[in-house]
Design a protein around this nucleic acid. Structure first.
Lengths: 151, 151
DNA sequence: CAACATTAAATGTACCTACATAAATTTGCA
DNA sequence: TGCAAATTTATGTAGGTACATTTAATGTTG
């Protein structure tokens, strides 16, 4: 469906404004679908992403600072997301012996098992993007990188 | 900056997964910049968007249902966003005489003035997108629409 | 060494989404 | 008419972002 019809706004100032709105709308569309897919596993998207980072580190621990560094959303509150994972016994938190200000965060076996079950279910695959050819996906990457070029 | 470097993940499964992450990341990047621009005016992005819809309706009122219909984020809670705008006296809420279940929401003069000041400041223009040519913006729109085609 | 600055994480606040449910009103129909 | 169903908004709860502040531990420096 064209973006015009999705949000019932028939005219945009120009192709740039339309692309801006389309980009934000489409990202939200993708994230909503992913969130719904994760719901049966009792995970939110940020929780899933942190679990994956922890698995990538395993058997080494991660600190909160490392999680923030690796996360898509740098300003999110990793500390409180880890709270929820800890409540569900998917991660452990221990004071780092080498630097007692820091906290060592590790994925548990239960966390590993959950990630495996999610991946076996094929949930983590990129829904939606499958309608693009590899060439189109590459084109999209190029355009997106260009948008952020002033960074 | 390439998305690989932004999130310190050197390798992706394929161009599709990369495009997915790139899309979500870039949308967040754009929205954060917009949110920062609105902050001096005491508005959040959803509040600004609702104010614009109300101006589009003016002098007719809008109902909550109409706002939801026009918003990018269909599942957002328009009712509570209107709460905040009402507290700031940027909108009014009156029971709709024709249908007393519904609520007539109208932008106030203060709301109009605020929108004008924001637009004079050029805040609402599409940051970032300006680095794309019109042709590229069009290409981007085509790709994004295609992603959501299974809708 | 003591005082101060810096760092790492946690916490508080405001506002947001997502979703379920409640409350009030209107509509439809036996 | 009367009552159930549908509609419209508001509210409750869980979890998220954004940002300022606090707390504890570590570095640094006179």
């Amino acid at each position: 469906m064209r973006i015009e019809d999705e949000i019932k706004q028939p005219l945009f100032q120009d192709e740039h404004q339309k692309a801006h709105i389309n980009l934000v709308y489409t990202a939200g569309w993708l994230q909503l679908r992913q969130a719904i897919a994760f719901k049966p596993f009792g995970l939110t998207l940020p929780q899933f992403n942190i679990l994956r980072i922890l698995r990538g580190q395993h058997p080494l621990p991660a600190t909160v600072a490392l999680l923030i560094d690796r996360m898509l959303d740098k300003t999110s509150n990793a500390s409180r997301i880890v709270d929820r994972l800890e409540e569900k016994a998917l991660v452990t938190r221990t004071v780092c012996p080498a630097n007692r200000r820091a906290v060592d965060i590790r994925i548990t076996q239960a966390g590993m098992d959950l990630l495996n079950r999610i991946e076996e279910a094929g949930i983590a695959r990129c829904h939606g993007m499958s309608l693009l050819s590899a060439e189109e996906a590459h084109q999209l990457n190029t355009l997106l990188d260009k948008i952020r070029d002033e960074d």
